[in-house]
């Protein structure tokens, strides 16, 4: 079983799709590099940190993007963002079975901050347009750097999120909160706390994610079962509004995720971080988010 978190973006694509089926758009030899990084004297990757293309998954055509966390933390710059937006727009005409976003990103790349922020906004609009067209957009989040900032928002705009326990999802990273608000607000060095807040288990308990083990095979298996579009309508959003309102009322003022898990009626909630994926899913079955 090969690990998702230890794989590079390209290894994830190769492991997920049917063997040999991946065709890359704007591949590295086209050298779509960031001129802004060059201008600041920073190394600039040939693919600007994201690979995009088409392939098949169990014979079904999918479009796919994979961010490389090892390059600048997967941060979004002008070229990087435009590649993802272009892929999402392409899906509106090609209508693949799904668009797979293999995300790993700290958010906006500060070296080209304005361009990155606008690029994230364009990705968000393109995801929403694609959902309106009925093509499912699925996020796979299992990288070491997690998914934060604007890509954290983008993740929650998509139809489905598949996530490993070790992965993280949030808006502001714990280090940023600690630096800005003080260690009393968020102790970023407390790894167990960071994972209770941002990790795959808490996101699964809240109903935001489907939890899988840290293996490419596990992500693939979960994907095959998840390729249905979930329409966004006034009615579905009113239901989502009720769910989020309930969460805010019940859990918005709780000090720790463990308190939330207890309030949901999960027995011995403090043991949840120690359980493996299967035991965890068994333990939280039927809990009321």
């Amino acid at each position: 079983m090969s690990s998702w978190s230890e794989a590079t973006a390209r290894q994830r694509i190769a492991g997920l799709l049917d063997a040999g089926s991946f065709i890359e758009f704007l591949p590295p030899e086209r050298r779509a590099v960031s001129p802004h990084l060059r201008e600041l004297g920073q190394p600039a990757a040939f693919d600007d940190g994201v690979a995009v293309g088409r392939g098949t998954l169990d014979g079904q055509t999918v479009l796919i993007a994979a961010q490389e966390g090892a390059f600048m933390g997967g941060a979004v710059g002008e070229v990087h963002g435009a590649k993802i937006t272009g892929l999402l727009e392409r899906a509106r005409t090609e209508r693949p079975a799904a668009v797979l976003l293999l995300l790993e990103s700290g958010g906006v790349r500060l070296h080209e901050a304005n361009a990155g922020l606008i690029a994230v906004s364009e990705i968000m609009r393109a995801v929403l347009a694609l959902r309106a067209a009925g093509v499912p957009v699925i996020v796979l989040n299992g990288g070491r750097y997690g998914v934060f900032g604007g890509m954290g928002i983008t993740t929650c705009l998509c139809d489905t999120l598949i996530m490993s326990e070790e992965a993280r999802l949030g808006l502001s990273g714990p280090e940023v909160i600690e630096t800005t608000m003080g260690v009393e607000e968020f102790d970023a060095a407390d790894r167990a706390l960071v994972w209770r807040v941002t990790g795959g288990k808490n996101r699964t308990i809240l109903g935001e994610a489907t939890l899988v083990a840290d293996s490419i095979d596990a992500f693939r298996a979960a994907l095959v079962a998840a390729m249905q579009p979930k329409p966004l309508t006034l009615e579905t959003l009113e239901a989502e509004h009720a769910t989020l309102g309930n969460r805010l009322d019940r859990f918005g003022d709780m000090e720790d995720a463990v308190d939330i898990w207890a309030a949901m009626g999960i027995d011995n909630p403090q043991r949840l971080p120690l359980l493996d994926t299967d035991a965890f899913l068994q333990a939280v079955k039927g809990a009321g988010a």
């Binding site: 590079t8 973006a9 390209r10 591949p27 590295p28 030899e29 190394p43 600039a44 990757a45 040939f46 693919d47 490389e68 090892a70 390059f71």
Partner: peptide, 18 residues
């Protein structure tokens, strides 16, 4: 076909062969 190996992460490199 062109080949890319490695990633441009700290202490690492990417190699493109064409």
């Amino acid at each position: 076909k062109p080949v890319l190996a490695g990633v441009l992460g700290s202490g690492n490199l990417e190699v493109l062969v064409e």
